[in-house]
Write a protein that binds this DNA or RNA. Structure first.
Lengths: 193, 193, 193, 193
DNA sequence: AATGAATGAGGCTTCATTCAT
DNA sequence: TATGAATGAAGCCTCATTCAT
């Protein structure tokens, strides 16, 4: 679909409104008001409300997947990749915050939209593959339950959308490092030896 | 409010439907169909759709808060309390799975319903207090960012609603132990010594 | 679909409005106004506007087809059956005038609704079969083009919806007899012999 | 009104679309797509959708009326004129098929557009006048109901738009002759004498 | 407590029409 | 003449809610 010129404004408005009210509670009139046009005019840009949701949610989803694919394929050990995963994840959240928040809220792990299940599943599998490789290579604990651990990592990162302000004092990289450090090394103090 | 006799069925149906479709996308007719009555009849039990949401969401929220309050107040060190927090959290999820999933999806960390902000906030504070005490007492790393760590723990646990099947092979206690173990000790293998 | 009690009123209103304005130009609000309810309330009776069209149009269509089937299957020669066809056709028009007018205007021979094509086609075939039998048995001209003649008869009868007032002086039977007489014997005067 | 250069294309597209979907169901965007321009551009050619309908419908209507007026005014007996009427009618249909189909469907005998009532009425009157003259002169049966017979003839001819393919094997003249033959002499076989 | 039926508000979507370029 | 984009009105449909029975 060729997009008229105010498409970025429409997307930004939609993401903002969807994040603030949730996709279902948000109305296209809310979105149109935010852009400064009438709700009917939105249909120069979209075909349906759901298409707008997908348009909003696609950039972070694709970026996350592409960057994660690349990082997983690269050389390196599991702990390094876990840090990289967290940085990519937090980086995407920061860059597309409201868009990503919509993704996390409406789609991730929810199985509600078949169109997105494959993408969603692939990401989980990529993370899991890293962890499994870490166990195999000995860099991660051999008693690690890889499935659970993957979801713990992803969950911690996705949960950032509920409390982290990417424009606040903590940068995406700092957040990523804190989350991945806790994931890798835990929060318990080590007996000095 | 004295509730007529089919109240538990109504609650269960509402939780099921809210979880499956999300609160906003779910209709009272969906709920009524699930119970086997007409939608108008639901108003013998409720005053509004939102009240039904709150009714669904209250049991897990209250139980989580009460049990966590108790556990925080009890004797013990932070690591032990972290395990206990995870067990309580996973236990509440397991016991009220669909109800809790609705809470997590619609309310936790979302700031959408002022009525629930206080409860939601208190829980976060309780967890944070445990972690802060752990740092103070030396059982947790002194470089731990307590706010982030609290959200990491809570996020990992809440994220269970998106992938864990409480009726599957992994019990609530097992899940809690895996999550808390990762949180406390990390996933990195320790050099054997 | 179980129909609430004012269903006949709804049908009558819909037929009236569809006939007056045409299906597409008619609005459900027109129909609702005619019944004396709000447009949303119509959805206690129907699932969509198109379903209402089909509901309106089904009774005359089915009655016409059933009665015509019976008459075709009965004993008799073609000319007698032509008269009977005309009487059935005009009778159905008279009994369900507005409904039938909607059928004729929106559906007959139009191929717009696949759901109705079979019914529509069967009727044409029944008429044609009578004419073909008439040619075979010698009661109709052997140079008759049966396809054309069938459509001429049906067209003359359907065209009644554009000018005949079934509540006017000419009864359905009279109309049928005039139309079938012209069809059978023509309008030319015969040389007295 | 001076018409820009692609006016014939616009008319043809409109006729095609109006015939396929019906005037109300057709959108100006459908028409514009058919022409290969944007819907807004149509307003270089027209002032309103209804004007487009009238433009489409005028050529066959005027041609039919003019030719029929001429033929009625000419010398001759009623039977000959009936044949001529049918030939003119079928000829106009063939020449402007989709345009004429739109006329028949949207306007003929429908009384929906006051602008067209006079034209429509005049045609009916012309046909009726021929039949009445035939009765008076003795060439048509003296028991003929002229009003009904006129509508039968016109209806049979208009109904051609629902089933006849003017590009098929039967020419307009053949169709006209079959229809008028049936109208004049009927379909019943005459006892050989 | 439940039903059947209605209300009324509001949401999504369509579309004829306008207008600056 | 055509485009791109917008307007504004209206239409279909949904749904929380009410109410008489």
């Amino acid at each position: 679909m060729p997009r008229p010129s105010r498409w970025p404004e429409v997307m930004a408005a939609a993401a903002k409104v969807f994040r603030a009210k949730g996709y279902h509670a948000a109305t296209l009139e809310d979105v149109a008001d935010e852009v400064g046009m009438l709700k009917g005019s939105l249909y120069n840009y979209i075909t349906s409300k759901e298409e707008l949701l997908f348009a909003v949610v696609r950039p972070p989803a694709e970026q996350l997947l592409e960057q994660t694919r690349a990082l997983v394929a690269a050389e390196g050990t599991a702990p390094g990749k876990v840090v990289a995963i967290a940085r990519v994840h937090a980086g995407v959240l920061a860059e597309h915050f409201v868009y990503a928040a919509v993704y996390v809220h409406e789609i991730a792990g929810m199985g509600r939209y078949p169109e997105w299940a494959a993408m969603d599943h692939e990401y989980v599998e990529l993370v899991r593959a890293v962890l499994a490789a870490g166990v195999a290579e000995g860099s991660l604990r051999d008693d690690l339950d890889v499935r659970t651990a993957g979801h713990v990592l992803i969950g911690s990162l996705n949960w950032l959308t509920r409390w982290w302000d990417p424009d606040g004092p903590a940068s995406a990289e700092e957040m990523a490092d804190r989350v991945s450090a806790t994931f890798l090394d835990g929060s318990r103090s080590r007996p000095a030896r």
